[in-house]
Nucleic acid binder design. Structure first.
Lengths: 145, 145
DNA sequence: TTTTAGAATTAGACCAATTCTAAAGTTGGT
DNA sequence: ACCAACTTTAGAATTGGTCTAATTCTAAAA
């Protein structure tokens, strides 16, 4: 176990336990991906995650990053946020919350609980149940007027 | 002006006026695209729109469909809805409303006004103004118990 | 330990949606 | 009619992501 740079002091044991508790089989690749991903709450693209994992010295292919993110989404470990056709983010914070997206800067930020809408999550279309509620408020920089 | 099939009895004059009023220069291609698009309220992909325009006898390239949709979005004539990395819909109804997306059927439907959330659209991040609020509630078919 | 079967990983081919390019065609103002 | 600016076009290129088939790993049994 050659984990040289210990810049993110994530308790390895906890992440292993987390993965196992969600029915994810452990592999070296999944561990290093999870280490980087869950080091902190963040919004990250598959590509950025691949870079981050690579920089952290974990040798993992891009396909595995995609596979693993897909798996983590299915297991409820991360949330997928579709911003547009070329921007899919993964949010390491799965608690129910919403987002601001700044179209000028490309920045994605969490919405304060207080600002978030209150919903009647009944009244869904006949014969359907809620999967996930995605609210993205697109904002732009105030023009310097 | 060889408009053979008049299946959608959209008043041509109104659509022309609409485009002009939004600062869109008129061309044959933009007219036929608008005719098909605004024939009714609908959620349509660029590809579906290309097919529909082609079926209606309007000879327009796919690049023009993309260009024109982009233009119409910028001019506030249609709304862009990003469902995932491979599904971008264009909504010919620009009035403020939200959507249900059925992940099983791929169906996108309008949310009833009464169900929609009520927002405080203040409290946006510092220095930003609202661009557009995108709420997509993803639902799935109720499993047959 | 070895074996084994299923699961996971990989590189690279592939795919679909979209954008780009540069040449040709339109348009509206004069 | 003429011109400059704008628009359209086909096809190439790009991008984000998925698929494939061969290889490697894992964990449990022998």
């Amino acid at each position: 176990m050659e984990l040289s740079s210990t810049q993110h002091a994530t308790p390895c044991r906890d992440i292993n336990a987390l993965l196992i508790s969600r029915g994810v089989n452990l592999t070296r690749q999944r561990r290093v991906i999870a280490d980087v991903l869950f080091a902190r709450n963040q919004h990250i693209t598959a590509d950025q995650l691949f870079d981050a994992v690579t920089r952290a010295g974990g040798r993992v292919s891009k396909a595995t990053v995609y596979n693993t993110l897909g798996l983590f989404v299915r297991k409820g470990l991360v949330r997928e946020i579709f911003i547009d056709a070329t921007r899919t983010f993964y949010d390491s914070n799965t608690s129910q919350h919403h987002h601001f997206y700044n179209v000028d800067t490309g920045e994605l930020t969490d919405m304060n609980e207080k600002v978030a809408p209150h919903f009647i999550d009944q009244d869904l279309p006949q014969g359907t149940v809620l999967e996930v509620m995605d609210l993205v408020i697109r904002v732009k920089n105030k023009s310097p007027q």
